[in-house]
Amino acid sequence: MALINKDTCKWYPVYTSPRAEKKAYQALSDKGIEAYLPLHKQLKQWSDRKKWTEEPFLKSYLFVRIKEQEQIEVLMTKGIARFLYFSGKIASMPDRQIDELKLLMASPYELEITAEDLKPGEKIMIKAGPLKGFIGEIISYRSQKQLALRLDSLGYSIIVYVAATLIDRF
Results as ranks from 00 to 15, higher is better:
60 S>I: 00
54 E>D: 03
154 L>Q: 04
12 Y>L: 14
77 T>M: 08
71 Q>Y: 07
55 E>H: 05
148 A>H: 09
151 L>R: 05
83 F>C: 04
122 E>W: 02
85 Y>K: 08
62 L>C: 11
151 L>S: 03
90 I>H: 05
41 K>R: 04
153 S>M: 05
123 K>Y: 06
72 I>C: 13
169 R>K: 07
51 K>C: 06
38 P>G: 03
27 A>G: 11
29 S>D: 12
148 A>Y: 04
95 D>R: 12
70 E>S: 01
130 P>K: 13
61 Y>M: 04
85 Y>I: 03
137 E>R: 12
136 G>I: 03
150 R>S: 12
46 W>Q: 02
57 F>Y: 04
100 E>G: 06
11 W>V: 09
71 Q>T: 08
129 G>D: 12
91 A>M: 06
161 Y>L: 06
13 P>M: 01
157 S>T: 13
149 L>P: 01
86 F>N: 10
27 A>P: 09
7 D>A: 00
55 E>K: 02
16 T>P: 01
61 Y>C: 05
165 T>N: 10
64 V>M: 03
76 M>H: 10
86 F>D: 08
103 L>W: 00
79 G>P: 01
31 K>L: 11
140 S>V: 12
119 K>D: 11
142 R>N: 15
47 S>T: 15
1 M>T: 13
146 Q>Y: 07
36 Y>F: 15
52 W>I: 11
169 R>P: 01
7 D>K: 02
59 K>I: 07
4 I>W: 06
109 Y>S: 02
148 A>T: 12
130 P>S: 14
